[in-house]
Design a protein around this nucleic acid. Structure first.
Length: 397
DNA sequence: CCTCCACTGGAAACCTAGGCTC
DNA sequence: GAGCCTAGGTTTCCAGTGGAGG
C-alpha cells in the first residue's frame, strides 16, 4: 500500500490487464446460456409463449432467494421473446419495486417503460394513484399494447404498500382489450403470499415457479464459465474459483454475490500488479464488499439518521433510548439542525437496526422501566470518516 | 404476587412540497 | 388563483408492558 508512485506507474506499464471483458462479471450481464436453470427457463418461455400469437399469457410468480437466477432467467427469456416477436405493440417492462421505492414511483417507472411520459406526462408527484392507473390502462387500450410487466422484488412492494396496485392490474382484464397486461412477479420472500388479497393471489399466481439456491458446486461451474469470458487464461485458477464459490455460497447459494466477489478480487489483483488471483485477493475483496456496503448505507442516510448514528457512536459500551436522546439533543444544537421527538428517534433507530448499522433490542430493567439497548455495529473510525464527507458533520472531526 | 418505571409502538393528525382541474 | 389531490416525514396522543424490587 505504501508503494511509490514510480512503482505504481512501472507496474501499470509492464503488467497486462487481467480482464478481457469485465462486463461478463457485471450484475446485469445476461450470458448466452444460464447453467442449471434450464427447467426454469423453459417453463418461463412456455408460459409467455402465447404472446407470439398475440394472446395474453398467464400471470406468473417466481420465487427464490437473492441470487438464484430469477431476474436473469426473466431477462433472458424476455430478450429472446422480444427478438422473436418483432411486434411494435409488444412492450416488455421491467420495474424493480425496491429501487423504485414506493407505490407511486413503481407506477411512474412502468409508465416510463410504456413511453407514456412523452405522450401524456406522468409527473413525479401530484396525481392520485387511481388516476395514474387509469392513464396507464387507457394507454394500453387505445394503443392496443401487449404488455408484460415484470415486477422485481414484488414482496417489498406488498410488504410496505399493500396490494392495491396489484389488485387494480390483476382485475383490469377485459377492460384493456384489445391490449392486455400480463404480470410477472419476482419475489425473494417465500412467505409473501400470506398478506395478499386472495383474489389478487389467485390471479397473480396462475403459474408459479420456485428457484432453488445454487449449490457450491453449481456456483463453481457458473464462475468457471464467466471467468473464461471475463479474464485472460490462467488469471482465475480453479483454486481461486473454488474459494469464491465457497465463500459466497456457504450461506445461501447466492450467485450474484459470488460473481461480484470474483470481479472485485480480479480488480484487486490487477491493482496489486499480480498475474493471477490468489487467496489474499479474494479475502480482501470480501472485506471490501462489506466496507462498501456499510459506507454506501451511511452515505445515503438522511441528515437526521446520520446525526442519530453519530450520537450512538459517542457511547462506547452501548446506551439506551433516554440517554441517547439527551446526547442527540446536544448534538443537534451543536451542528444546528432541528431536533426530532423521542418517538421519532425511536422509529429511526428501528430503521438503522434494519440496515444493520446498530443493534437496538428492547430490554426490561424491572422497576426502572423498559428501554431499547442500543449498540453500534460498525467501526467508529470508518463511521466518522464517512460522516465527515457531509458538510453538516465536517466540523465535528 | 403486585407495582410501577421508562419507555415501546400503534394510530391519527399535521405539515410540506409537489401537481391536478377549473 | 382557489380548492382539490398525493407521498412522505414528523408530531401528538396514549394504551400497553416485562420484570426487578418491594
Amino acid at each position: 500500500m505504501s508503494d511509490s508512485i514510480d512503482e505504481i506507474f512501472r507496474r501499470a506499464k509492464e503488467s497486462k490487464p487481467l480482464f478481457v471483458n469485465r462486463d461478463a462479471l457485471s450484475p446485469d450481464y445476461v450470458p448466452m446460456h444460464l447453467p442449471f436453470r434450464d427447467p426454469q427457463t423453459r417453463a418461463v418461455a412456455q408460459i409467455l409463449a402465447p404472446i407470439l400469437r398475440g394472446s395474453k399469457p398467464s400471470n406468473l410468480l417466481l420465487y427464490g432467494k437473492t441470487g438464484t437466477g430469477k431476474t436473469a432467467v426473466t431477462n433472458y427469456v424476455l430478450t429472446k421473446l422480444k427478438a422473436e416477436a418483432n411486434n411494435p405493440n409488444l412492450v416488455l417492462a421491467y420495474v424493480n419495486t425496491r429501487l423504485a421505492d414506493g407505490e407511486y414511483r413503481t407506477l411512474a417507472d412502468f409508465a416510463r417503460a410504456l413511453d407514456l411520459t412523452k405522450a401524456k406526462q406522468i409527473p413525479l408527484t401530484g396525481l392520485a394513484i387511481g388516476e395514474v392507473v387509469d392513464r396507464i390502462s387507457d394507454n394500453i387500450k387505445t394503443n392496443k399494447k401487449k404488455v408484460v410487466l415484470v415486477l422485481d422484488e414484488i414482496d417489498y412492494l406488498v410488504k410496505l404498500f399493500g396490494d392495491d396496485i396489484l389488485y387494480a392490474f390483476t382485475r383490469s382484464g377485459t377492460k384493456l382489450s384489445p391490449g392486455f397486461l400480463a404480470l410477472v412477479g419476482i419475489s425473494n420472500d417465500l412467505k409473501f403470499k400470506e398478506g395478499l388479497d386472495p383474489r389478487v393471489l389467485s390471479s397473480l399466481s396462475e403459474e408459479e415457479l420456485v428457484f432453488p439456491p445454487y449449490t457450491v458446486d453449481e456456483l463453481r461451474q457458473i464462475l468457471t464459465e464467466r471467468a473464461k469470458v471475463a479474464f485472460r487464461p490462467s488469471v482465475a485458477s480453479s483454486a481461486a474459483i473454488n474459494l469464491c464459490a465457497a465463500m459466497a455460497g456457504s450461506e445461501h447459494g447466492d450467485a450474484r454475490r459470488a460473481i461480484d466477489l470474483l470481479r472485485i478480487a480480479g480488480e484487486v489483483a490487477e491493482r496489486e500488479g499480480l498475474k493471477e488471483i490468489d487467496d489474499s485477493c479474494i479475502r480482501m475483496a470480501s472485506d471490501k464488499m462489506e466496507v462498501d456496503r456499510v459506507d454506501e448505507a451511511i452515505r445515503s442516510l438522511p441528515v437526521q439518521n446520520k446525526a442519530i448514528l453519530f450520537a450512538v457512536s459517542r457511547f462506547d459500551g452501548g446506551t439506551n433510548t433516554g440517554e441517547l436522546y439527551l446526547a442527540y439533543n446536544n448534538l443537534c444544537k451543536k451542528i444546528g439542525i432541528e431536533t426530532l421527538t423521542q418517538r421519532r428517534l425511536s422509529g429511526i433507530l428501528g430503521d438503522l437496526d434494519l440496515l444493520g448499522l446498530v443493534e437496538a433490542s428492547v430490554v426490561s430493567k424491572g422497576r426502572r422501566g423498559r428501554t431499547k439497548k442500543i449498540q453500534l455495529l460498525i467501526g467508529k473510525d470508518s463511521l466518522e470518516k464517512t460522516l465527515s464527507e457531509d458538510p453538516t458533520f465536517a466540523a465535528l472531526a
